[in-house]
Computed example of a mutant assay.
Amino acid sequence: MFILTKIADLVQIAPEDFGKQSHAAIEDNLNAKYANKVVQKIGLFICLWDIVWTSEGLIGQGDGYANVNGKLTVALVECRMVVFRPFKGEVIVARIASQTRDGINLATDFFHDIFIPWTELPEGSEFDSQEGLWVWKVDEQEMFYDNNEMVRFQVLSEEWHDQTPSGPLDMADQPASELLPPYKITGSMKAPGLGCALWWEE
Rank of each mutant, 00 (worst) to 15 (best):
K88H: 10
S22A: 14
F110A: 13
E142G: 01
W49T: 04
Q99G: 01
P168C: 05
E120D: 09
A97Y: 10
E202Y: 11
A176P: 04
E201C: 10
P86W: 04
E126I: 08
E149W: 05
F18I: 00
E27F: 00
Y65H: 13
G103E: 03
G187W: 06
C47M: 06
N31K: 02
K71W: 09
G57M: 08
Q163D: 14
L10H: 15
P175C: 07
W200S: 11
A191W: 08
T164P: 02
T164H: 08
I92N: 01
W136L: 03
V77G: 00
S55G: 15
S177C: 08
M1C: 08
P192T: 06
G124V: 04
G62M: 08
V83F: 03
I92A: 03
Q141V: 05
D109Y: 13
D50C: 04
L106V: 02
M81G: 01
Q40D: 12
A107G: 08
I116T: 03
N31V: 00
A97N: 11
L198C: 15
F144N: 07
V77T: 06
R152D: 00
P181N: 10
D28L: 03
E78M: 07
F84K: 11
T73F: 04
M143E: 11
W136N: 05
F110D: 14
G43E: 02
P86S: 06
I59M: 12
P192K: 07
P86Q: 05
D146W: 07
I59T: 11
V151P: 00
I185N: 09
M150L: 12
G187N: 05
M171C: 10
Q174M: 14
F127A: 03
T108D: 14
E126L: 09
V135L: 00
E78Y: 08
S129F: 00
E123V: 07
L194R: 04
S55F: 02
W199T: 06
Y145S: 06
L179E: 13
E201M: 13
L198M: 15
G60K: 13
V52Q: 13
D63A: 11
N31Q: 03
W200K: 11
E27S: 15
L156V: 07
L169V: 06
N29V: 04
F111E: 12
Q154P: 01
Q154M: 09
V38E: 01
P168I: 07
E159P: 04
K33S: 01
